[in-house]
Design a protein around this nucleic acid. Structure first.
Length: 362
DNA sequence: AAGGCGGGGCC
DNA sequence: GGCCCAGCCTT
């Protein structure tokens, strides 16, 4: 079975989406923009990436500018986008590219770079350098599983789908336009061959599609059920002091929200918070309970009880009357940050949610 | 092969 | 509430 690759390209010539990282027809793609957008788009929607991408290239106009920047600035520009290992690897990769002087243009060489796996290597090679390979993302998996009515549940069936996807541009006209063909697959998956209610009536591959012949395109791709998320609990402390400012600390280099800034607080545990912490300063106590923040991560749901403490000096924050809510080890490495500088900090969304519970000074 | 790793939008 | 999103890395 040979697919009408050219019909997809004709469809693309008419319906292609315009995006800030994409070259317009007749223009050459910018490898920096292609690379950066591909990293940002990993597990992240086009709508979310759009503004981040524009701000990022305004702040870091070139690979060299990105390589020369301190890590904190890169993490701050990434804050809110999630999966922060992407930003750390992006920065590492920029330094390697800057030292090297140019982008490699083959799949194996690209895949050897930090943060670039099998998918992204093929995406950059095909989109930026017109190499005839097919990057298999969620879109391509969905399109391919429907074309072939593949019933092997994902993720176990990924290898089979990748093999099938390689045959999609198995003719010379499509391979000559490898860059367009890859982006056409993305656009088809994003606008026609959608997860729910696919628009088969508008699909250039309708007559090629086994799932459509079965009358159940939406049934594909088959996926194995996901594990449920456990709940975790903890406290976060908004310790306000002179300036006005607030204490922040940098999280460890590995693990959840690695190397990002955070409010001081307790560890996050699977047990409910101890009931002996007063939720209000009813007895004229030193802290105020502001509320509970719920935040859903990929593999756990976190509930943080947020408290506010006002101190006249940072030394006072270590005084014993703030225990057990605030113990010195929580702030041993904390540093004050002026409220006006919070927007420039590498604060993940979870911490911005917590800070939103307090009344910022005017 | 499985699990860690963010966050937002959609239904 | 669950699912999806232009996945990578470690174990």
């Amino acid at each position: 079975m040979t697919f009408s690759a050219v019909s997809l390209l004709l469809w693309y010539d008419h319906y292609r989406r315009i995006m800030p990282w994409r070259a317009l027809p007749g223009q050459k793609p910018d490898p920096y923009h292609v690379w950066l957008s591909e990293i940002m788009l990993q597990q992240t929607t086009v709508a979310t990436v759009h503004d981040y991408f524009l701000k990022f290239i305004a702040r870091f106009p070139s690979v060299q500018a990105l390589a020369a920047a301190p890590q904190h600035d890169v993490l701050a520009a990434w804050a809110g986008l999630g999966y922060y290992s992407r930003a750390r690897n992006l920065h590492l990769c920029a330094r390697e590219l800057a030292a090297r002087g140019a982008f490699p243009q083959t799949v194996p060489a690209l895949e050897a770079l930090p943060g670039i796996g099998p998918y992204t290597a093929r995406a950059i090679a095909s989109i930026a350098f017109n190499v005839p390979v097919i990057p298999v993302d969620g879109n391509v998996e969905r399109v391919t599983s429907r074309l072939f009515a593949s019933v092997i549940p994902l993720p176990a069936g990924k290898k089979q789908l990748a093999t099938l996807a390689e045959t999609l541009n198995d003719d010379l006209p499509a391979q000559a336009r490898a860059s367009d063909f890859t982006q056409a697959l993305f656009d088809l998956g994003a606008t026609i061959c959608t997860p729910r209610r696919p628009k088969c009536m508008l699909c250039p591959w309708q007559k090629d599609c086994a799932a459509h012949r079965e009358g159940k395109a939406a049934f594909y791709p088959v996926k194995t059920p996901k594990k449920q998320r456990p709940d975790n609990y903890g406290t976060a402390l908004i310790i306000r002091g002179p300036g006005p400012s607030v204490l922040l600390r940098k999280r460890p280099e590995k693990g959840l929200l690695a190397a990002m800034m955070a409010l001081p607080g307790s560890d996050w545990l699977s047990v409910s918070p101890p009931p002996d912490i007063p939720r209000k300063n009813a007895s004229g106590g030193p802290w105020m309970y502001l509320g509970r923040v719920k935040h859903v991560f990929t593999h756990l749901t976190l509930y943080l009880d947020v408290y506010e403490v006002e101190v006249t000096s940072w030394g006072a924050a270590r005084s014993s009357h703030l225990a057990p809510l605030l113990v010195p080890e929580m702030i041993v490495d904390a540093v004050p940050c002026a409220f006006k500088d919070l927007p420039d900090q590498a604060l993940p969304s979870l911490m911005r949610k917590c800070l939103a519970l307090t009344q910022l000074p005017a």
